[in-house]
Every structure is written in structure tokens, then in C-alpha cells.
């Protein structure tokens, strides 16, 4: 059974002027259906305003569909009775770590989630320890979060979600505010959770190089799914991605241009290693 399934999901919001009169309706997510299997690593791409964050907020019942249905672990998110189950199943990490950390000390922050779930104290400590270890932040457990770097704070945010033992974690541009090292740390932590702990990961990002390891990529445009496939299938279509305001990694772009210049090199090169191999065959 799919951990997440959306069935003709549509989300509209009504724009009103200052007097509260209806000005119009914006369809942020338009008739979207997809399935995410347990343990998958899925990346969602799309330009600003394409509907990807709105979509993500449906996955742990922050928003509810105007039409259609979202099933999390088989449960309809619109039903009140399922609300807590849905939120326990899917955890969410946002862009700005400073908006997500509330504790004075790292370990206190991570313990906040399980405490709210009513987990017994001894187990909270266990969960705090394993979560911080999973993201490589255990040695910082006694520190104040505001003395950490952006990448470290973001990993604490992820640990806070992990401590609630979700089966799926949704990350909405978790690296947008980070420097190159911070970005690497966060992506490495997410990949480790997916590989080792088998937690389903859904990553929304504008950085094309972060998604080459994903199992599946979904590209959103105007609230609809514009493209879906493996990273290789998606990155083989450079011109289409450009028309959707997106980009490809520099190595993919270089291979694409060499191909246009007449070199016999496959489309959809994702990594430097593949690129080197492809060029060796051209020699």
C-alpha cells in the first residue's frame, strides 16, 4: 500500500478585497493524482508559485483538499478522526530553521514533539538520543540552538521531527537559506534517514544537484504535474525544464551542449562520473 496517495487533489483559495468581497478564485493545486511508495525518496520541483508548497501542506493535514482526496497510510486526511494519525505519520520540515526551533537547549527542542504526543519521559530521552545521532548532532545536545550554524539548526529541526517517529518526512526547501556546507550536511542527513531508517522522504527544492539521487521526481507547473519520472528521465529534457523556469546541474547542461555540438553522448548525464565515462567512449 502506498504511504501517500492523492486522488484528483484540487485546492482553491478565494481571494477577497478589503471589504471581504470575492475577487476571484486561485487554483493552487489542480487535479493532481500520484502515489508515493513506502521508503521512496521523492523530489518535487517547480518554479515559485507552481503549487508545490501548497501540495506539500496537504500531506500532513495543514491544508485540506477543496476537491479530491489525500490518503496518508490509507487514511483520508479530511476526516477529523484521522487528523492525529496523519500528523504522526508525516512530519514536516520548513525552510527557515529559526522559525522551527523553540527550545533553549538542543535536546529540549527535540523532546518537545514526543512530549506533546504523551510519550513517557524515559522514552523521550531515548528518542532524543537516537534522533540526534541519526542527523549527527548528538554532541551538540547541551548547546543552545542559537549558537549553531544554519545547517546544524536545520538538522536539529529534522531530529525534532524524527523524534516523533514519522514514517514519512516532508522537507519544504530545507536548504534554501544555507551555505554549501550546510546544504550538504542536511541532504546527507536526509539521504541517510531514507537509506538506513527507510523513512519515506519528500524533498522540495530549487537546487537541481540535490535530487540526482531521488527515486522519483515530480515537476509541478500551474498547480498540475508537468513531468514525472526518474531523475535521468527528467534531466534528459533540458529544454522542457528551461521552459518550466527550472534548470539542470552544470554537468548535465555541459553534456547537453556537447551533444548539440555533435558529440555522441547520451542525454540525462547526472554525475561527474557518468560524464567522464561517456566522454571516454567518445575518444
Amino acid at each position: 500500500m502506498a504511504i501517500i496517495k492523492t486522488d484528483n487533489l484540487t485546492f482553491e483559495y478565494i481571494r477577497r478585497d478589503e471589504e471581504g468581497n470575492v475577487e476571484g478564485i486561485t487554483t493552487a493545486v489542480d487535479n493532481v493524482s500520484f502515489e508515493i511508495k513506502r521508503g521512496e525518496f521523492v523530489a518535487i520541483l517547480g518554479h515559485n508559485g507552481s503549487g508545490k508548497s501548497t501540495l506539500a501542506k496537504h500531506l500532513n493535514a495543514i491544508l485540506f483538499p477543496t476537491e479530491g482526496t489525500v490518503f496518508v497510510d490509507g487514511k483520508d486526511t479530511s476526516e477529523d478522526a484521522n487528523l492525529w494519525d496523519v500528523r504522526e505519520t508525516v512530519g514536516m520540515v520548513f525552510q527557515n530553521p529559526d522559525n522551527q526551533i523553540i527550545g533553549q537547549v538542543v535536546e529540549e527542542d527535540v523532546g518537545f514533539g514526543p512530549e506533546n504526543l504523551g510519550v513517557p519521559t524515559a522514552e523521550i530521552w531515548e528518542r532524543m538520543e537516537e534522533s540526534l545521532k541519526a542527523v549527527g548532532m548528538y554532541e551538540f545536545r547541551k548547546k543552545s540552538p542559537n549558537r549553531l550554524s544554519g545547517g546544524q539548526k536545520q538538522r536539529v529541526s529534522i531530529a525534532g521531527v524524527l523524534a516523533m517517529h514519522p514514517q514519512c518526512i516532508v522537507l519544504d526547501e530545507p536548504t534554501a537559506m544555507l551555505d554549501p556546507i550546510g546544504r550538504k550536511e542536511v541532504i546527507r542527513a536526509v539521504r541517510a534517514l531514507n537509506d538506513v531508517e527507510k523513512i519515506t522522504a519528500i524533498l522540495i527544492t530549487h537546487y537541481m544537484d540535490e535530487i540526482v539521487h531521488a527515486d522519483k521526481v515530480i515537476v509541478m507547473d500551474k498547480g498540475k504535474i508537468a513531468m514525472a519520472g526518474t531523475p535521468r528521465e527528467i534531466f534528459s529534457q533540458v529544454d522542457k525544464l528551461k521552459s518550466l523556469s527550472l534548470d539542470v546541474p552544470q554537468v548535465t547542461m555541459c553534456a547537453h551542449k556537447l551533444r548539440e555540438a555533435g558529440l555522441n553522448i547520451p542525454e540525462g548525464i547526472l554525475t561527474n562520473d557518468e560524464f567522464v565515462k561517456a566522454l571516454q567512449q567518445c575518444q
Partner: peptide, 8 residues
Amino acid sequence: AGLDPKGR
């Protein structure tokens, strides 16, 4: 920061 590739 936070802009899509085309916006950037």
C-alpha cells in the same frame, strides 16, 4: 535565496 532558477 529561495528564488527558482529562472527568477535567479
